[in-house]
Design a protein around this nucleic acid. Structure first.
Length: 478
RNA sequence: UGGGGCGUCGUCAAGCGGCAAGACACAGGAUUUUGGUUCCUGCAUUCGGAGGUUCGAAUCCUCCCGCCCCAGCCA
């Protein structure tokens, strides 16, 4: 049985393990009369290469003797010549319609410190003279790369055929593009270097470490990959599919919890001030085995600012003056009084509760459509919550960029929003980093590595599907 | 007539001579103590276009059209 071996990208870097072997193989090609040392300048090389429609012409150094080539190449290796003064070129075909075959450069002289081999080498192989060779040495069976390398496959094959070495198969397919995302490594590097994100593991980055920190599970990424499929056509996958895969998994597995992102104080005027009740809350309605937990309730609570509206439209099922709403796992409350500051901002609600409604229902069976989440003001744990949006304001980082503009001109200024004053239920006291949770009615959150015993930090992985919010948005636009 | 690829729903994507899968998105409806979940329903008489072959074509042939990649001593 032969094992499948896959290789992917960055060959020059990884090929450093085989620099000695590559050097020997280059000498083998020289001895075969298939490579020569060229002294054309970069400008001349470009000129001699021809254009897309016109053939190139041969370098005057193309027909040196094997002995001379050997001597020159060894001296290049020994460091006798200045950077850029000479190259080793494969002798293929200057008239080839495929420009990659017009005597491609194999080695250039470059005094650079390699991250792995340091200053040992002053000649470095080009991508094409490293890709197939390192694949071959590693007994790769299938060398996977992206579409733009289709033109390089004939050269990949040529080198291996001339070398008469084990010959892996290069297979190309389309790279993954995600809407509103920067996917190119070179661009990602800019985001990091220029400080547009906090680092390679910034939750907005489409890196494995970024996805992990945002809260995407490995299996959700795998499911996503399977659903996207593999093909050769350039495509742009909707980020919504990734979110769907995450929700699908976490809906079944994530611990539910109540967290208030923008707190609004609620005082229950008819609830005994010194009383505290422990309410039973379900940990996951999709998985009974996850059991229940206790949530403390008292006369001082915080609810979500967006769950109250003074002039509420008809379909607003949440808290409004004179309206009744259910506090999840607790009681029905009715809003009697709205307290505002000098600027007219609502800062507190005075409500009464129905003692008959404990647990969320009443003997008279009256219908209360809205259910909102809450935390006890006296028991809640302060937390920092980080909300993320798309990094870009355009879906296609390559195609939607206008003439003369750069993808950085389309950075979403709201891609990160930090909420310093969020409150979560005491169940989350001392949560550890690396946990996926669902904040009920909000979305899925992941405890960030910045979390300490004193302060929890939550990253929003994705929101819940929100048909109400969508409707509100649409109405605003019209 | 430079070469190399690719065209199937808004987005991905199966299909490879015999009735156009599926998923996301979207739109309706039912259930619901998360405006979540779940459940129903709808969503390509047509596959870039035009001819041709065939009893039969998204699939085979011809021509045309559109999009992507290639002229780094980058990968």
């Amino acid at each position: 049985m032969q094992w499948l071996g896959f290789s992917w990208g960055d060959h020059e870097y990884y090929a450093s393990d085989y620099f000695d072997q590559l050097y020997e193989w280059a000498i083998r090609l020289i001895k075969k009369g298939k490579a020569y040392v060229c002294e054309l300048t970069p400008e001349e090389i470009r000129e001699y290469r021809g254009t897309l429609k016109e053939p190139g012409k041969e370098s005057p150094y193309r027909n040196r003797s094997i002995e001379e080539n050997l001597d020159l190449f060894e001296r290049m290796h020994a460091g006798e010549f200045p950077d850029g003064s000479k190259t080793l070129r494969a002798k293929v075909d200057m008239a080839s319609p495929n420009i990659n075959m017009r005597d491609p450069i194999m080695y250039r002289i470059l005094r650079a410190t390699h991250p792995r081999t340091g200053d040992k080498w002053c000649i470095y192989p080009m991508y094409d003279w490293a890709h197939g060779q390192s694949d071959s040495i590693e007994r790769i069976t299938h060398s996977i790369c992206t579409l733009e390398f289709e033109d390089h496959r004939p050269l990949y094959d040529w080198f291996l055929d001339e070398l008469e070495e084990y010959h892996p198969q290069q297979i190309e397919f389309a790279r993954l593009n995600l809407t509103y995302m920067v996917m190119s490594k070179r661009r990602l590097l800019r985001l990091v270097k220029e400080g547009h994100v906090r680092g390679w593991d910034d939750p907005r980055m489409p890196t494995i470490s970024g996805f992990r920190r945002k809260g995407f599970t490995p299996s959700s990424i795998r499911t996503f990959s399977e659903r996207v499929g593999v093909a050769k056509r350039n495509s742009m996958v909707d980020y919504a599919l990734l979110e769907f895969c995450l929700r699908e998994e976490l809906n079944k597995s994530a611990q539910r919890v109540m967290g208030v992102l923008h707190p609004l104080k609620v005082t229950i005027t008819n609830y005994p001030e010194d009383q505290v009740e422990e309410m039973d809350a379900i940990n996951n309605p999709e998985d009974e085995s996850m059991g229940t937990r206790k949530v403390p309730f008292c006369n001082e609570l915080y609810v979500e600012q967006t769950d109250f509206m003074e002039d509420a439209p008809k379909k607003f099922f949440r808290l409004k003056p004179g309206g009744e709403v259910r506090l999840r796992y607790a009681y029905y409350i009715t809003c009697n009084e709205v307290i505002k500051d000098d600027d007219g901002n609502v800062i507190e609600l005075k409500c009464t509760y129905d003692p008959e409604s404990k647990g969320g229902g009443t003997p008279d069976g009256r219908r209360v459509k809205g259910t909102i989440h809450w935390v006890s003001a006296r028991h809640a744990v302060p937390a920092e919550v980080r909300l993320y949006e798309h990094l870009l304001t355009i879906a296609d980082a390559a195609g939607d960029v206008e003439e003369g503009k750069d993808f950085l001109d389309y950075m979403n200024p709201n891609s990160l929003e930090v909420l310093e004053n969020a409150l979560v239920e005491p169940f989350l006291k001392n949560v550890k980093p690396g946990v996926n949770l669902q904040f009920e009615r909000h979305g899925y959150f992941y405890t960030d590595p910045d979390t300490t015993d004193d302060k929890a930090v939550f990253n929003r992985t994705t929101t819940l599907r929100d048909t109400w919010g969508k409707m509100v948005k649409q109405n605003k636009q019209h």
